[in-house]
């Protein structure tokens, strides 16, 4: 992991009328890091992520993503990040190949780049025989792995993963994390949310949001020491139980 900051967040705040969804959060994320972004439902994770992805204008505070300002350069941010969530990832009624062509095209990649990258991913995921099948016909585990490959198809500097492993079987869940490790080793920064606390242990650093604020941020080992907890699950419960607001 290099000490180069790829995301800087300084007192970033988002208010909806009288409700402060994100309350002056401050942190940095380093290049090649696997950064776990945890919090209870309603803690403000999604709102914070939307601001960092250039999809929502902050009320106040500063933030840069891949060197671009969230207020003035949100279009450049979108070009330099990847995004994947459990709820939305691929087009089910397009084939495996068509999905990759579509995403490559949206990000303005050349035909040669798309062709080479498509061949590379099909080889890597052992999906060569499925290239012309509709994504909707693939087993869920394959879809999630393919969705991750498509999210980093355009070789972004950062990929945002919003609960990428929800509902996935335990074997696929682990294969998915191996892909995350590999992407991080290739210098892609990973910003990930999850409800699986064992996955929090796989992150280099973890932040935990409570009621719009970042209440804790450190390596899993340090957090466990600080909160005198045997597991990240226990750390999370200790922090999230302090929350006074509920729901999402």
């Amino acid at each position: 992991m290099l000490n180069e900051k790829i995301i800087t967040v300084d007192h970033l705040t988002k208010r909806f009328a009288a409700f402060t969804a994100v309350d002056a959060i401050t942190f940095d994320v380093y290049k090649g890091e696997i950064f776990g972004f945890l919090g209870a439902n309603g803690a403000g994770k999604t709102t914070a992520m939307r601001m960092l992805c250039g999809l929502s204008m902050p009320t106040s505070g500063k933030a840069t993503v891949a060197g671009f300002d969230v207020y003035t350069q949100n279009e450049q941010i979108k070009k330099n990040i990847g995004y994947m969530s459990q709820k939305f990832s691929l087009y089910e009624d397009l084939t495996v190949k068509e999905n990759m062509q579509l995403y490559g095209g949206i990000y303005g990649k050349s035909n040669q780049f798309i062709k080479d990258k498509t061949a590379f991913i099909l080889e890597q995921l052992h999906l060569k025989d499925e290239a012309n099948k509709l994504v909707g016909s693939l087993p869920l585990g394959w879809k999630q792995k393919l969705a991750f490959s498509v999210a980093i198809f355009h070789e972004p500097e950062i990929v945002f993963l919003d609960e990428p492993t929800g509902g996935v079987d335990p074997v696929t869940r682990r294969e998915f994390w191996m892909m995350i490790y590999e992407a991080a080793a290739n210098g892609i920064t990973i910003f990930v949310t999850t409800h699986y606390m064992d996955e929090a242990e796989y992150c280099n650093r973890v932040s935990i949001m409570v009621d719009g604020k970042v209440e804790a941020l450190d390596t899993p080992a340090m957090l466990k020491q600080q909160y005198q907890s045997p597991t990240m699950d226990d750390v999370f419960l200790k922090l999230a139980r302090k929350a006074t607001r509920s729901g999402d």
């Binding site: 439902n41 409800h195 699950d233 999370f236």
Partner: peptide, 10 residues
């Protein structure tokens, strides 16, 4: 409990 955080699940 799908998509629900660890505290609410408990």
């Amino acid at each position: 409990t799908t998509g629900v955080d660890a505290v609410s699940r408990k």
